Every structure is written in C-alpha cells, then in structure tokens.
Amino acid sequence: MLAAQRMEPPRTSRGGRPRDPSRDGVIRAAILRLLAEVGYGGLTMDAVAAEAGVGKATIYRRWRTKQDLVVDTISELNQAIAEPPDTGSVEGDLRQIMSLVVATVNSPAGGAIRSILPAMQYQPALVEAFRTGPLAVWRAAYAQTWARAEARGEVRPGLDQSVTAEATTALLVQRWLLTGEPLDAAYVDEVFETVVRPLVANARPVQG
C-alpha cells in the first residue's frame, strides 16, 4: 500500500527538558504491548511509562491524554506493508502481501488493534485513526498491487475495491478478528491456492 495519511496528534509543550525523539520507538512499542495485554480500558499513562522505562513527564511531553497516545500510535501501524512487494507477477505480489499482513496481525500491533475494537464504539477518534492509519495502508498496498497487475496486462481494469479484491483477504481478517483460529503459513498457503489463485485466474483480461 502507499503510505497512509498521517494524523498529526495534538501536542502540548509543558516546559522542562526538550522531547527526546530517540525514545519514541521504545514508548510506541510499550503502548502496543500493553494494548494487546490489557486493552484500551486497562491502559494508563502510568503503565506506559513503567513499561517503557521512562518518566511520566516523558509521556506527557508527547501526549496530553490516553486517547491522544493511542490515536497517534494506531496511525503509525502497518508500515511494513506501506510499500508492497513487486515480484513481477500479481500472484507473487498477492502472496507476499498476505504473508506481510499475517505477520502484522500476529505481532503486538495486531493484538493492539484487536484490543481497541470495543472502544471504537464510543471513541470516534479511534475509528478515524484506524481508518486513516492501518486500514488506509492496507487498502493502498492492494490498490498499488492491482494497478501494477493491470499495467502488466495480467488482470482486467477496475479490480481495486471490487469483490474480487476484498475476497483475497476476507478469510484472513475473519480468522484474525472473529474466530481466533491460528493464522499461520500453512493457512495462508491454503487460502492462496484454493481462493486467491482461482480469483486471479478469473480476473484475467477477456481475450477477443
């Protein structure tokens, strides 16, 4: 996917020592771990500071509230698939993206996203962060993949955001968010061979 829109989280200056950018990665990793473990409701600024091994002032120099903290972190997720692989064929590209998606949802980032879904019902800012962050990255990567396949003459035009495109990831998302069954390489292989490959074959340009 192409790089997603970046949300600019609210920041406030609280004086004292300037913000140290080198701590950002450590803090974000701590946020993801905690979200996966305790969910949005159980997350506290104190817990983030303790998990990251920093002072509370370091957290508050970056985010005023827990919502700011989570929104900012969500908007940065899924960067591993921001630039989709180019293997030279649509089948190869889709197979690689499926592996990257599964690696992401099986990581602390995937656990964090799952944990905030209940909170999205009453936190519009979280919904927006998910829409313009992980979901936008995901959609943009697939759009770029279908566009390249169309340019190579492998598929007919207009597949981006089609039912065919949605179906290539639907079973992965179902396992991740609904059934909780394992998402491993064997399952990805099975989905690719029994669902994705036939869909791609059916999407070939009409000869005539």
Rank of each mutant, 00 (worst) to 15 (best):
L177M: 13
G39N: 12
I74D: 00
P134G: 08
G15T: 05
P198Q: 08
G16N: 10
S115A: 15
T87W: 05
V196E: 06
A129K: 07
V206M: 03
G180F: 06
K56E: 09
E91V: 03
L35N: 11
A50P: 03
D24Y: 06
G92R: 09
P10C: 00
A136P: 11
A136Q: 14
A167N: 13
A143T: 07
G110C: 09
E91N: 02
G53R: 01
L159F: 06
G110V: 07
V191G: 00
Y142P: 01
T58C: 09
P9G: 01
V195Y: 01
Y60S: 02
A103E: 15
R152L: 12
P18A: 13
V70K: 12
I81D: 05
W138Y: 15
A57F: 05
S22F: 05
K56H: 13
Q161D: 15
A112Y: 04
L69E: 08
E51L: 04
P157F: 08
S107F: 06
R175N: 10
G42R: 11
D46I: 10
E76Y: 08
R23P: 00
L199G: 08
P108N: 09
Q67L: 15
W176R: 02
G88K: 11
M45W: 00
D184L: 06
A186C: 02
T87R: 14
G153R: 03
A103L: 07
L171C: 01
E154P: 05
R62C: 12
A4L: 02
R33Y: 02
V71L: 01
L199C: 06
Q96W: 02
W176N: 08
R175F: 02
A140G: 15
E128T: 14
A47P: 11
W146K: 01
E37S: 15
E8K: 13
Y40C: 03
V71W: 01
G55N: 14
I59L: 14
G111L: 07
I74Q: 04
R19H: 11
A125L: 14
P134A: 06
E8R: 15
L135V: 12
M7A: 08
E128S: 11
L2V: 12
A140H: 13
A170C: 03
A52W: 01
K66Q: 13
A129R: 03
S115R: 13
A30D: 08
S89F: 09
Q144M: 14
V127C: 11
D93V: 08
A3W: 10
L43T: 09
R156Q: 14
V173D: 07
A103N: 12
R17H: 12
G158P: 04
T145E: 09
V105Q: 11
V191C: 05
D24K: 10
Y60W: 01
A29Y: 02
Q96L: 12
V70D: 07
D184K: 07
V38M: 08
A125Y: 00
Y40A: 00
A140M: 04
P157I: 08
V102E: 09
R152T: 10
A170H: 09
F192W: 07
L159T: 03
R131H: 11
L172S: 05
M45D: 04
L159S: 03
G53L: 02
T164K: 00
Q174K: 10
I81K: 04
A165H: 14
M7D: 07
